[in-house]
Every structure is written in structure tokens, then in C-alpha cells.
Design a protein around this nucleic acid. Structure first.
Lengths: 137, 137
DNA sequence: CTCAGTGCAAACGCTTTGCACAACT
DNA sequence: AGTTGTGCAAAGCGTTTGCACTGAG
């Protein structure tokens, strides 16, 4: 589970992508990141963003968040943590839960699956959307 | 949170979709269901499948599973339960966990989100893929 | 010098939608 | 009869990919 692929060359594009991601806690989507990287490397292409995000995620340098039924988001923070998604605007934030309790899920379920991992995804209303106080939308 | 939209007309397509879904525990994707429904309603279209699945999910008759980075799957079982996804073949099964513990997550997180829900998604190897014993794939 | 990485644009896979017609109620 | 639902095909959207070129090592 820790058999990461190596990153061989460090291109300008790649470095900038990593830097932008490290300086953000907003879990940007590929195209949001594209916008940011483009400011510093104007000729960059969206394909390059995607290719690098995949490579970096496989190398374990960043994390790919594949959340329910949404565009993928990327996280420069490698520490173990969960996420909340705003049900109104889609924004994603980190959740720090005191979770030793996360480990006491069954290793083998009745269904015969050998369970190897679990993700907890919270949903709720972000501070901004609470203000606008549209009850659910 | 229980403000379901009403289903007004019961067409043949709609009835067959519900029936197929109720008789399955395999959480089919829209196109798998399309294949099944087509056997009984040969002229059905994929667009109709999608439109009905959305309508039925909104009406609370079925559940839409929006799992991490995959095609959506649909579940005729409305009881509260979690799912395991096979990391090898993508198959999805139900998990019954004794979860009163699910409720004791924080209502309000430090990030300022008002947390209203949570989903736990397990990953693992299904029985079939354990046999083929490709360690991860 | 070499080959991994890039830009560009086209293709892809899943899902949604516009339109004219069909069929529940 | 009236209007919701349908089939079909086209469009949409995020993501991936083929190709010739570029640049890191």
C-alpha cells in the first residue's frame, strides 16, 4: 500500500503545481488549479495539469479526493484526515476528528469482502452558506 | 430533509425500473439497469433510465449512490446502511455495521461547518477477486 | 543525447437535454 | 383532453489520450 511510483523529472509546471497545492487548503479542482498555475506558467495546458496531478498522487506527493458524485479535488496535505463537503456550494474543507474509533470497523464483513480501507465523508453547510441561510437547497 | 417530490404517473418503464432494482442487491449502474430493463421493455432508452432514476431518487423511492470517483450506482434498499467497493472489480455490496457509533460524530466542526450528515465508504476485495488473488491490481 | 514531459486538439465515458411524439390519469 | 413521460440524437462536462515537439538530466 506504500509502493509509490517515483517522480523523475521536475519541470517548471510540476513544481508550480506542487507549490500552489501546498499553499492552499481549499482542495481545488483540476481546472481551479489550472487557473492558478496559468498565472505563473501562462502556456500551461489543462492536460498537463491532469497528467501531473495523477502522477503526483500516484507518487504520494499529493492526495486525490474522489468525493461522491463530484469533480475530483486535490489535497496537498498528506496527513490522515477527513473532509466535509458543503451541500450548498460544494466547497470542501478538512475535518479533524479524534478518531481512534476509525480503526474499530470490522476487518471482514459478512458479505465476504476483505475490507482494507474506509473513508468518512461529512456533509453540511459551510459558514458562508449558513449566513445566506437557505435551509438546504 | 424528507421533503420528497411526488411521482405522479406510473409508466411501464418506471415500474420495471423499480421492480428490477428491488430484486437486485448488486447496486447496478444506469447502463447495467438499462440492459436489464431492455429485456422487458425493448424500446426503452438510456435517457429514460436516467430520468427515472433521478426522479425516483428524488421521490425517495430508491437511493442514488454517489461513490468516490466512479459511475453512479442505484440501490433499491432504503434502509440505512453502508457500502463496500471492491478495489479490483468495482462491484459494490452492502455492509451492515452495528453503528450507533455512527451518531457520535461532532455536530459542529472547528471549521465552522454545520455538519448534517456523513457517509462511510469501505473499500476492499470482493470474494471473487480474493480468489483471483491479484494482491491489489 | 535521450526520453519523460508538454501543448494542443480530438476523443472518451457518463450523464443531461431539446424536441416532437406517445400514453398515463 | 391535458400534460407528464418517452425515444432519439445531440450536446455537455470532466477527464484522458495521440502526436509531434521541448527541455530536464
Amino acid at each position: 500500500m506504500r509502493d509509490h511510483v517515483e517522480i523523475t523529472r521536475m519541470t517548471r509546471q510540476r513544481r508550480v503545481i506542487i507549490e500552489e497545492l501546498r499553499h492552499l487548503d481549499t482542495h481545488p479542482t483540476a481546472d481551479e488549479l489550472y487557473g492558478l498555475v496559468k498565472r505563473r506558467v501562462p502556456h500551461v495546458s489543462l492536460g498537463t495539469i491532469y497528467r501531473n496531478l495523477d502522477a503526483l498522487a500516484e507518487a504520494g506527493v499529493i492526495r486525490k479526493l474522489e468525493m461522491s458524485g463530484m469533480q475530483k479535488r486535490f489535497d496537498g496535505n498528506l496527513e490522515e484526515h477527513h473532509h466535509v463537503r458543503c451541500i450548498s456550494c460544494g466547497r470542501v474543507a478538512d475535518v479533524r476528528v479524534e478518531t481512534d474509533r476509525d480503526m474499530d470497523y470490522p476487518i471482514m464483513d459478512a458479505s465476504g469482502y476483505r475490507i482494507t480501507g474506509q473513508t468518512v465523508e461529512f456533509s453540511g453547510l459551510c459558514p458562508e452558506c449558513q449566513k445566506e441561510d437557505r435551509p438546504t437547497n
